[in-house]
């Protein structure tokens, strides 16, 4: 069972996750407008910037985050921004979107000039997240857990970060048990996705480089 404190933590994190999203008009542009390669590049850049701003707003609402050392806050956000972005996009791709929308989004990404060797693992990741049929709580908590990774580069007070991450992990473990009682491996699978995310993050610098070149 979840304690009252744990329930409060979940609703707090889920509220923050739902409240801070990429502005709707920007998302609409992505789906509706015709685009050439240059416009596509600019729009995706704008989206990435907006994503980081939204991510920071979400993170500020994670209980305890603002009490961390300021430079550690920046190190955590810098280290996790790409992973949180992939998680958020995966959530979009696992939703049932109106007919054709997923294809438009996928086309846009495929025509952005990013090389195929990076695109394939990205869509594989989206697919593997989709298969887990995660609830909103799981998405929100997993994102918070990703951000609160004590082993990011330049984090000075790793113990302080661990103290924030551990209760989140415990809550997520319980949520998995409650939401997926017939899948005892569900929690382990979610954590496995975090490993996959690290690989995507690792290749991200190369992705950007290949994008710039093209």
């Amino acid at each position: 069972e979840l304690s009252q404190d744990q329930q409060a933590l979940i609703s707090y994190v889920v509220d923050a996750h739902n409240k801070h999203r990429i502005p709707q008009d920007m998302a609409r542009k992505l789906l509706q407008e015709q685009f050439n390669a240059e416009e596509n590049f600019l729009l995706l850049t704008e989206m990435a910037t907006s994503h980081v701003q939204v991510l920071v707003e979400f993170t500020k609402n994670i209980p305890g985050f603002q009490s961390l050392d300021h430079e550690d806050q920046i190190a955590l956000l810098k280290g996790s921004a790409v992973e949180a972005m992939f998680l958020r996009s995966a959530q979009v791709f696992s939703k049932k979107l109106p007919n054709g929308h997923t294809e438009v989004l996928e086309d846009r990404i495929r025509q952005s000039g990013i090389s195929e060797e990076f695109i394939t693992p990205m869509f594989n990741f989206y697919k593997s997240i989709g298969e887990l049929q995660m609830m909103q709580e799981e998405h929100a908590l997993l994102t918070a857990i990703t951000i609160l990774s004590p082993d990011r580069p330049y984090v000075k007070d790793q113990e302080a970060v661990e103290r924030l991450q551990e209760p989140m992990l415990e809550v997520l473990r319980k949520v998995c048990k409650l939401q997926h009682p017939h899948e005892p491996q569900h929690f382990a699978r979610l954590l496995g996705r975090l490993t996959e995310l690290r690989t995507l993050n690792h290749h991200h610098a190369e992705v950007l480089e290949s994008w710039r070149m093209s």
Binding site: L42, T45, E46, T49, V52, Q53, V56, E57, K60, H70, Q73, I74, L77, K78, A81
Partner: peptide, 21 residues
Amino acid sequence: PASNLGLEDIIRKALMGNMEE
């Protein structure tokens, strides 16, 4: 333009509350 800002700049600005609503 935002595209010329680095990741860290965007994070620092947003943390300070300079985010445009």
